[in-house]
């Protein structure tokens, strides 16, 4: 028995689904961000699997860029959470509907 890329893609699909359900179900914005990170990681797994299978380094380069964008996204997202939570502590994502004005 050998680990093929199908195994990696299956695991990636499972992890992506876990993150997706977490993003939809949880209401704490911090946990929602973490679920988003899980989804990004699932995509990274499949990128590396494709890079290996197709013998092309571009898949690994893509993971590198995903990492950078994820870091930027977390920084901006968390600062939005901090800015909002300063005004209303123990916020949930539902409370953000007050942004409608």
């Amino acid at each position: 028995m050998r680990v093929t890329e199908t195994w990696y893609l299956t695991l990636s699909a499972l992890l992506f689904t876990v993150g997706f359900v977490g993003l939809l179900v949880r209401r704490n914005p911090l946990v929602m961000f973490m679920s988003l990170e899980l989804m990004l990681n699932a995509v990274n797994i499949s990128f590396v699997a494709f890079a290996n299978k197709l013998d092309d380094i571009a898949g690994q380069t893509a993971v590198f860029f995903v990492l950078v964008v994820a870091a930027a996204e977390v920084v901006v997202g968390l600062s939005i959470v901090v800015a909002v939570m300063r005004r209303r502590p123990s916020i949930t994502a539902d409370d953000l509907r007050s942004l409608k004005g």
């Binding site: 199908t6 571009a58 380069t61």
Partner: peptide
């Protein structure tokens, strides 16, 4: 086996070199 596509379009992975060299060449 759902992986389809042309192999090594941009840059094939050179097994004789370390992974970081391959990545740096492409990056």
């Amino acid at each position: 086996v759902a992986v389809t596509g042309t192999e090594s379009v941009t840059q094939p992975i050179d097994e004789t070199q370390p992974n970081i060299d391959n990545l740096a060449t492409d990056l």
